[in-house]
Amino acid sequence: MVVLHEAGPVRSSRGGRPRDPSRDGVIRAAILRLLAEVGYSALTMDAVAAEAGVGKATIYRRWRTKHDLVVDTLSDINRAIAVPPDTGSVESDARALMDLVVTTVQSPAGAAIRSLLPAMQYQPTLVEAFRNGPLAVWRNAFAAMWARAEARGEVRAGMSGTVTAEAMSALIVQRWLLTGEPLDAAYVDEVFETVVRPLLRNARPAG
């Protein structure tokens, strides 16, 4: 599930009238919608202001440039991702995390990230923002899952960061970023049963 949390500390690099933090969520949601619709190149500060229903000064009090706006919003996506709780089983943990990835990539945030792929080729700060945002959430969640499973004796030590670990979400990410094919429940079920379950069985401790 993807939920919007309360806004964090206000960040501003400009003087003048204090910004209203209650508008942050509305503005960020507008940015994500526009990125998904028009992409990075066609995005403008004026369009963001119009989409969010605020004045241009409200946007410029937060960000000096379009690039700053997008990088900050992309880095901030991690606050909008709710990580599933410990279920007590590595298999149910794995399925919950797969659902988390699917829900995120099918959200406005996921559509916005996909629209940024062309710009990421020449804007390394966008790549860094993606790594520090949703990618960091996914990696940390999977690492915690493997640590819990190891502590319970369900898997052998050192599974986090292995090819097995990468494979658990690779097919979902491939459809999201490359092929554009549907990520429906039937597909996720098939991936879980035919790929993830066998991987988890092979990850069990020897003996």
Rank of each mutant, 00 (worst) to 15 (best):
A49F: 09
S89T: 08
L35N: 04
L35C: 05
V38Y: 14
L74K: 01
L126Y: 03
A111T: 11
A119C: 08
S107Q: 09
D93L: 09
E37W: 02
R114W: 11
E51G: 01
L69S: 11
L74G: 03
G25Y: 05
L126T: 03
L69F: 07
V83K: 04
K56C: 06
G25D: 14
W63N: 02
V101E: 12
G55S: 13
V54S: 09
S22V: 09
S75G: 15
A42T: 00
T104E: 06
D24M: 12
D76Q: 11
E51H: 02
T87D: 12
A36F: 00
V70H: 08
I59E: 10
W63D: 04
S115G: 03
V48S: 07
L69E: 10
T125W: 00
I59F: 13
P84F: 07
S115F: 01
K56L: 12
S107T: 08
P84S: 12
K56D: 11
D46M: 07
A96G: 06
N78P: 00
M45Y: 00
D93C: 04
D72W: 00
L32M: 10
E37M: 07
T44V: 08
R79P: 02
L97E: 05
A111N: 05
V71F: 05
A94I: 09
I27P: 01
D76G: 15
P124R: 02
S75W: 00
V48R: 06
R95H: 09
D68L: 06
D76I: 03
I81S: 03
A57S: 15
A94G: 04
V71H: 06
T104N: 01
L126K: 10
A82T: 14
L97D: 04
T104P: 00
M45E: 14
E91A: 08
D72T: 15
I31Y: 07
A94Q: 04
E37F: 04
A82Q: 13
Y40S: 02
E91W: 05
A29F: 07
D24H: 12
D72P: 07
D46W: 00
V71M: 09
T44N: 04
R28I: 13
T65N: 11
L117F: 02
T125N: 11
V83Q: 04
T73M: 08
V101L: 11
A30W: 08
V102M: 01
V71D: 04
D72E: 15
P108D: 05
